[in-house]
Design a protein around this nucleic acid. Structure first.
Lengths: 191, 191, 191, 191
DNA sequence: AATGAATGAGGGTTCATTCAT
DNA sequence: GATGAATGAACCCTCATTCAT
């Protein structure tokens, strides 16, 4: 009833529908119907479909950042911190397939492309755990001497593919395999 | 007579437009216009948009398979063959950014999802160089003892991400970096 | 608010256009234009062209049923009731040539065919005045001993043809001729 | 191979397809394909789809006229000749359901409407057995004193409806029922 | 005479967005 | 704030007809 409730409800419903069906397969009217809200109401909180989609992405991003932050060891061997970080992300994505599907959709859409570009150009802030970790690792000369972004791709890409395979049922990411694959990622970048 | 020419022209134009703008951003009418062809003409050669999209994917796939096949060493150390294979694919994708963008689009669309599923279930044939290589590597115990599909993800995923970054201009994949990153991929999976 | 008005307007306009021009000669856009409504608006009230067509038929059917019901004598000689019924229908169709043309179109389209089949198989209800009358007539042995459906065809078919001729201006169905032709129909089936 | 053969083949195939599927459900290309002929070839023999459709109707009409003519008794009681005529037509339509379906389609299309109008206005010729019979019957005062066209509708309409019901499987027109129904038609018009 | 590739107007339907209530 | 009827541009696809060969 409260405006904040409606906004939240729209976002929840939109996340589900968009993640499962793809951005352009979900009309605004469908979101409105499932959220028990009038179509026009959505436009009170979001300038348009694009903004809704972007807003949803930011939400997931924050959720992940928050989740990673808590309990993240700021000290100790880099390798251990790396494994902690990758393992945590892996588990989060496995436990939240909806978020994963959404991120995938988003990254492979014009929204994601331009967002990546914006972020790459604008280095301000970016409380990115990976980047921080990699920079420290480079300083310590424990990882290969290649561009940070390459280190990033060597790490994050396999994780994403593995989660996708897991969700599609092609492989089962249990704790043992999580350990093995994250260690493999480390092997890829370690000097 | 013109038959082959028009079909080819449509495919060329469609590849460009679809790769650059995304499948659902390119109306058939746009393809027709750019190919200097009537809309109906496209339907002479393709049953519909879906078939055009699928057909284009098959074409790229074949192009890659052909390219990989020629000069592929059937003997020698597995590591060398692995580096040859990954390097060759990397260079092809860098040299054919359109093909790369198209493959990405396709893989992240319902078409790609169902194709992946089909291929996973139907193991017949699949003259897949990677799979063959991995199986040999597993037999020789030179790679880690994890599911083949995980080996695959650990290898192919970084390559794809790197190419994307290269195309977006975030990194420059020169020969040195190609060597370094493919070696990193090997490090990830080697025992 | 306008809801009912627009729906009604669409139906009125559609009835006219479809009856006069034939189902596949009338685009939805034409109906929309004549109803001073956007194309999309039609789809608010009807799932598609098919539903619009079917809905229009039901409307005419109900109109006729209502019209026939009022004042229909439940007693008296069967012949008189038969003449009352046929006469009334004849006059209605003459007075509502649009309805007549529409029914004709509908009956000679896939919609009508399947409807006939459904009705024939599913005998439930069908508050059909003719059928009720015929069954009574058969029980009283005042009509020929042939299948009811044949009695029906012997009766209704000439009426339809006569109305068509009247509308086309080939004949003028005045009260005298109405009397003569309905009596002829009775002569056809009476024992 | 011969031009006459192609024309014939096109007509045969067109009759089947059009009768079974409806005029606007059969593209010219489908007719061409089934007749093993190029699309353009059809246009060598027919100015367009309309002419093909009209030409097909004329053909059926002639077939019926020929069939009726042979063995038609020019003498004897009018009633007997009437029963002979209606019975023969009934049997023909039952034996040639394709022709029947085609005639129905045609009559309920703009082609049929305009043809009817033309014929009504232009009384020349019209070697119509019914009309001849009715005029004789009127002169002999054996039928009711109503317009010939009404007599026609009272006769032909039930036959058409009965054949339709027969083809749809709602009734079985065996010899006994043919006799009964044609006699009923006579009862309808006889004085 | 025969072909069939090519055309493009036209059809049914969808859906992001607006705006009067 | 909230509603949802209304809009209409845009999409995919069909098919009668033409014309160069």
């Amino acid at each position: 009833m409260q405006c904040i409730d409606k906004r939240t409800e729209v976002m929840t419903v939109a996340m589900e529908l968009l993640a499962e069906n793809g951005f352009h397969r979900v009309p605004m009217s469908m979101i409105a119907a499932r959220a028990n809200v009038a179509v026009g109401t959505i436009y009170l909180y979001f300038a348009g479909k694009d903004e809704l989609i972007t807003e949803l992405f930011k939400e997931v991003e924050n959720k992940i950042a928050t989740m990673v932050r808590e309990g993240f060891p700021t000290e100790g061997p880099i390798r251990e911190r790396f494994l902690y970080l990758t393992g945590k992300i892996l588990r989060f994505l496995i436990d939240n397939p909806l978020s994963f599907r959404y991120i995938e959709q988003f990254m492979n859409s014009p929204y994601g492309i331009s967002m990546r570009r914006d972020r790459f150009l604008d280095k301000t802030g970016r409380n990115d755990f990976f980047m921080a970790l990699f920079e420290e690792a480079i300083a310590d000369r424990v990882v290969k001497d290649i561009p940070v972004i390459a280190l990033f791709s060597l790490t994050i890409a396999p994780l994403i593919f593995l989660v996708r395979d897991h969700i599609l049922g092609f492989v089962t990411l249990d704790e043992a395999l999580i350990r093995q694959t994250t260690e493999a990622c480390w092997d890829a970048i370690k000097r």
